[in-house]
Structure formats: structure tokens, C-alpha cells
């Protein structure tokens, strides 16, 4: 296995995903298989001169600094799971968290 159980748990924590204990063994196997598969990329001799390129425009466009909010057809109270007195509400966080 190229990916260990501990690594899967660490990654799941970083990604904020619950992983059920009974699903863990399968997940470790699948992730290992995928990582092994994509690892063939490192078998290709590295060529430091290759500059990564991404399609799309070469340079960012500058937006004019004007207050032009795009209107919402309806407010957060319509789509938020918990919205009170104008705030999105989440379980209590300590001030020092």
C-alpha cells in the first residue's frame, strides 16, 4: 500500500470528511491504487525547463473600482440552513479558537 491508514485519516481530517471505520480499509486500498497509478508521472524524467502552463488569458483584467454589487434574486434567509437576525449561525465557537 503506497498510502497508509494513518495518512488517509490525516488527509480526511484536513479535508473535513468523516470516514467510517468500516469503510477505511477499502478507502486505503482505493487511494493507494489511484496514487500508484498517477505516480507513473514521476517515472518520466523531470525536465526543469518545462514551465507549467494553464489555458486562458495571459494576464488578469483589471476591474474598475465601482460599487456594482450583483443582486441576489433572494436573500440568504431563503437558502441558509440557519439564519437569524441577519447572521449565518454555526455551533458556538470560543473566542480563542
Amino acid at each position: 500500500m503506497s498510502v497508509s491508514r494513518e495518512e488517509v485519516l490525516r488527509i480526511a481530517q484536513l479535508a473535513e470528511l468523516d470516514v467510517q471505520e468500516q469503510a477505511l480499509a477499502d478507502l486505503v486500498a482505493q487511494m493507494s491504487r489511484i496514487i500508484d497509478y498517477v505516480a507513473q508521472l514521476s517515472a518520466v524524467p523531470a525536465n526543469g525547463s518545462v514551465k507549467p502552463v494553464v489555458p486562458g488569458p495571459d494576464a488578469i483584467r483589471f476591474r474598475t473600482d465601482e460599487v456594482t454589487p450583483s443582486q441576489l434574486a433572494f436573500g440568504p434567509e431563503e437558502f441558509a440552513p440557519d439564519f437569524k437576525e441577519g447572521f449565518f449561525v454555526v455551533p458556538k465557537l470560543g473566542q480563542f479558537e
Binding site: V38, L41, A46, V50, V53, V54
Partner: peptide, 9 residues
């Protein structure tokens, strides 16, 4: 990073 280089190739 490797994948981005391969993408360029």
C-alpha cells in the same frame, strides 16, 4: 507540479 509540467508537454 509534475502534472502541471506534463500538462505543458
Amino acid at each position: 507540479k509534475r502534472a502541471q509540467q506534463m500538462r505543458a508537454l
